[in-house]
Design a binder for these strands. Sequence first.
RNA 1: GGACCUAUAGCUCAGCUGGUUAGAGCGUUACAUUGACAUUGUAAAGGUCAGAGGUUCGAAUCCUCUUAGGUCCACCA
Length: 725
Amino acid sequence: MEDAFSKPYDPQATEDRIYKKWLESGFFNPDNTPTFPGQETFSIVLPPPNVTGTLHMGHAAMLALEDIMVRYHRMKGDKTLWLPGTDHAAIATQSKVEKILEKEEGKRKRDLGREEFLKRVEKFARDSHDTIVSQVRKMGSSVDWSREAYTLDEQRNLAVRTAFKRMYDDGLIYRKNRVVNWDPKGQTTISDDEIVYESRKAKLYTFKYSAEFPIAISTTRPETKVGDTAVAVHPSDERYQEYVGKEYEFVFAGVPVRVRIVADESVEKDFGTGALGVTPAHSQIDWEIAQRHSLPEKQVINEYGKMAAGSPELDGKKTTEARAIIVEWLKSNNLLLEEKEIDQNVATAERTGAIIEPLPKLQWFIDVNKEFVIPYSNITGIPSGSATTLKKLMKAVVENGQIEIIPERFDKIYRHWIDNLRDWCISRQIWFGHRVPVWYRDGGEIYCDIEAPEGVDWKQDEDSLDTWFSSGLWTFSTLGWPERTKDLETYHPTSVLETGYDILPFWVARMILMTTYLLGDIPFKTVYLHGLVRDAQGRKMSKSLGNIIDPVDMIAKYGADAARMSLVVGTGPGNDMKLSEDKIKGYKHFANKLWNIARFVTSNAPASSGQRPELDEYWSAKADELEAVANEVTENIEKYQFHLAADKLYHYLWHEFADNMIEQSKLDLKDPAKQEMAAWSLRRILETNLKLLHPFMPFITEEIWGILYGDGKLLMIEKWPTNAA
RNA sequence: GGACCUAUAGCUCAGCUGGUUAGAGCGUUACAUUGACAUUGUAAAGGUCAGAGGUUCGAAUCCUCUUAGGUCCACCA
């Protein structure tokens, strides 16, 4: 009996030691792995986790799936790079630190000032980074740490400035005063994608501005009506035709208001009274109507969500208080015609939870519809030197099949998102992030470049950029762009992007936008989307529900191999997965089973010369079966059916190899005529299975490999046991 | 309002382009076992594949509709 096999298998005593061995080997870095003739490249960038804290089970699933692909390709002999990094996550990190600061010291960021506050955020980000790195290691991820990147480091900052400058020069980035989504709590604008709609009950009030005014209108926000500058009706609505073009002046809730009646196609005849009070400064849609009819805008709510309408009675009041006052005023003046409860979706900010206040603001935008000439293009259907738009580029690469999305159904969702895409507001009024590379000087001078302008009295724009601007560059900024490095040439476009389907629009689409524009190429060939990890009842894991399963706890209890298997088996691409502790436990049992199989084989089947002996009918059939399993597993991995591959190996090892073949060998090993054949077969089948299982359960397979062949050779670079692709 | 997903054993899910008698794990029950196995084996019970219709020699699988649960997008003043 070999002492090397503890009883039972102890992942705790094994995993960290094995990971160290891998690190020391240097094989995570493709520059160090042996090269083969005709070798292909396989590259993945790790979706950078936000430095807002610790990793959750979703990250663990991502790491497991990517490591499977990476280890498989490395063993196949491909030049394989998995590039890790973290994301500064601008607004998310800043608001997290703000919360901590307020809770622990009762201070706000302005009490510290920009510089001091940023130091705090950076310290927090560094700590989070260190935690994340140690968790990524715990999972067994074979990432190339020598190429680690951060979305806010020097190199990435240069990439951001370069990208901004190019878009600015092409006229794709512009600055404009427009109604944007203002988060009164976070004191910043946010993009459409950072809005979460909450359904609530609201009251829809139908009223007239004044007794003389001929048309009644409906609204859920009477307080904004002091900012109305028009009433819009549908051009074909006979009820209101006679009023179109007329102007009215009156005093509404103590505020002088002047409205013009306009005809606009966007008005629904059947909604409410069929007439819409137009408030250009506080509604996206009204702003657009105002543009079409050259209507003035009148801001009546300020950045703090308080009234500023030029009325002593209303000013300084919260919008909800002002609403009550105005409703009272309507009632007492007999102007309120109807009050009805309706269901309404309220826009709230994803990070702070505050209700979004649409406000006109001077902001930076990316124009997704503006034509520009693309100097170089590797995109099918869009020749170099042709005129195109960002939207067209984003659509083309998915429609022409250059990028494949798995599962397929998500490309519909992607296209739909593109169709609805409006100009992207990229400036944020937060301190943490990439500062807008634009400088101003008295006299209205504006300067945009990669480096700051020479000379005094230039002032840099105070705003920073949306975090997705920098993560959109991730596949190539990590490889050295804007420099034309060897890495960029070798590993870009990347092979696969593996991420959760929930960030398809945020991140995947933005990477496609940035890469097609800046490189004239795709960022990746395949997008593999995994689902959300939910609890055993199918609920989202959240702090408030207290149903979070922490990957670190699970690894400590059951080992990383077990945790990985539990996140892979039983779940196809794009489907949410339910996870329970029992499931992880089950795979710990499996690890132990494998451990005992290895113990049995080493102590009962002595290593042979390697020459294949004559096999009888039983063992010959088993040899064929092994080959079939290896081919099937390979095929499943190639087709991104990792759950099938893992499940197959689980059953084959436990119920074929252990229950059947080992039992048979117990008889054969006692028979001198069959002994060698049985021993050889056991060895060979175990060996092949260790290779096949390595991408899924890297630690235990590597450990057993080391015990079997104490020559220091690593399983992680053994040749994959099939040639079939 | 638009789109998508899911529905298979008590529970969690496989079942790839339609092809014998629909599978696994957990759970349940019976028996065996101190062993390569703390975490074992053998077997049993358990299914109108959500419902209805259609295509087909043949449907869990393809099509249509219905029902239930879930998700995303749009944002209606």
